[in-house]
Design a protein around this nucleic acid. Structure first.
Lengths: 249, 249
DNA sequence: TCCTGACATTGATCCGGATCAACTGGATGA
DNA sequence: TCATCCAGTTGATCCGGATCAATGTCAGGA
């Protein structure tokens, strides 16, 4: 499994942003980032606040600069399902669509680097590489969504938890620190309830399964959120995925 | 809810194909379809055959001309989850990716209109509209996948069945005929097992829920596959979705 | 210092869907 | 005409995760 992540590759910057704007491909970034610099503005959102509601008019697209946000859908009776997890450098919004299709909620304090949609779309038209890059990113998200469908439809609660931990580790290298002896540790960026909404479980089941993994030594807990993985391979075995990394790679 | 579908809009043809190639946008189709005509070849696959296996080298992309195919993922122990349903005019394959990420299986006899990947990609580079159209199609698929995540994570077995029926009705107008009195009928293009793999259920549960819907008059069965919907609104109520169509629209 | 409220854990019980198993009804073909 | 073979149905039972409820933990504030 490869732990090369967007955050790890964040060496190329746009103005003040500490992240790389992935909507801009590396081949064209020098020129286009200069143009983007003129368009952008920053927006900060507190933990717990909803950034946009499904159905809202959305006149901007954005890159997530810092913090963590979620995409979710809610049924009339309140059942909710998270459909995406946004980490720094991820893209929010959709050129060519006026209304938000999902609720976007900040789970930690969040900074967005926003671009008004109209000029961004114009830039996209002038710059085929950006559209191409967006297509690549969308295809990656589609793969991730389908991977998640397998998880939701066919995995057990224990496998779901292990998979979520593996995905968090893989996607955000900045969250974890490689300790000595191969152990890996990081802070969970989600509450038990948010994890449950992501995994299609209840928060009690999430809590019980985390306790079970702890009891069996697959993970260690320091406090409620800080997780230590003594043996990553052991965790990966619990995910139910191909042990060689397979689709996770 | 809108029942305008791809099949209903299939008036614009490419050579012999009775479908519209949706990867080509309507603005540019005259010129580019002429070019595509030179590239394409047909391929037929029997019901039950797998067209490509996950991991296979794939040197073509294609439009589905007739029949029905599925995209699915399988875990080592055999648990499988369908992640996509391909109907006529849908696009198969991925420019810029060498290996298939999913198993593609024909559930009925299938005809593909294939394009070798290299020349198709070259055409894409010359023709920004095609890339744009592909981005739109991919975004639509992403929305469908996320809709499906809500279904897999949070809906009951009964809601899942009702939703699948509603989606089949919505997506392929050619499958159903509006009978007199507002009733709607069509043949199910999937076995109970395929439905189960799509919905994250077992085939027994699918069968039981279909029987229950029949018993309660939400649907009628003529034979095992032919379904009559006496009252579409009644069915939609069972899906758990917003009654105004909501995200299904 | 204690109170409060948010988050998390744990226990007891319930239930929806899985599992195991028997059976039915067509279609196919010897 | 009858054996065979699926796809589908139905029944009995089981079990994983949901639900309901009580308790624990800890940070922040009066």
């Amino acid at each position: 499994m490869s732990f090369q992540t967007a955050a790890a590759a964040a060496s190329i910057k746009c103005g003040d942003c500490p992240i790389r704007h992935r909507a801009v491909c590396s081949r064209c970034e020098t020129d286009e980032l200069r143009e983007l610099d003129g368009l952008k503005y920053y927006r900060t959102i507190e933990a717990g606040q909803t950034i946009v509601w499904s159905g809202d008019e959305m006149d901007f697209v954005a890159s997530l600069v810092s913090g963590i946000a979620t995409l979710s859908q809610t049924m009339e009776d309140g059942r909710t399902q998270m459909v995406g997890l946004l980490l720094p450098s991820d893209f929010v919004g959709r050129p060519g669509r006026a209304e938000a299709a999902y609720d976007v909620t900040a789970t930690t304090d969040v900074t967005l680097c926003c671009f008004r949609k109209k000029p961004f779309e114009a830039l996209m038209m002038r710059t085929p590489h950006i559209g191409q890059r967006l297509l690549e990113m969308t295809l990656d998200e589609l793969d991730a969504a389908r991977e998640w469908m397998l998880l939701l439809g066919r995995k057990t609660a224990r496998e779901k938890i292990a998979t979520l931990l593996a995905i968090i580790i893989r996607r955000d290298a900045s969250l974890h620190l490689q300790a000595d002896g191969g152990a890996l540790e990081f802070d969970l960026p989600l509450t038990r309830e948010a994890m449950a909404d992501y995994l299609g479980l209840t928060l009690e089941t999430v809590s019980r399964q985390i306790s079970a993994l702890k009891r069996e030594g697959v993970i260690e807990l320091r406090g409620k959120r800080h997780i230590v993985i003594p043996d990553l391979d052991r965790l990966i075995e619990e995910t139910g995925d191909d042990s060689d990394g397979g689709v996770l790679t």
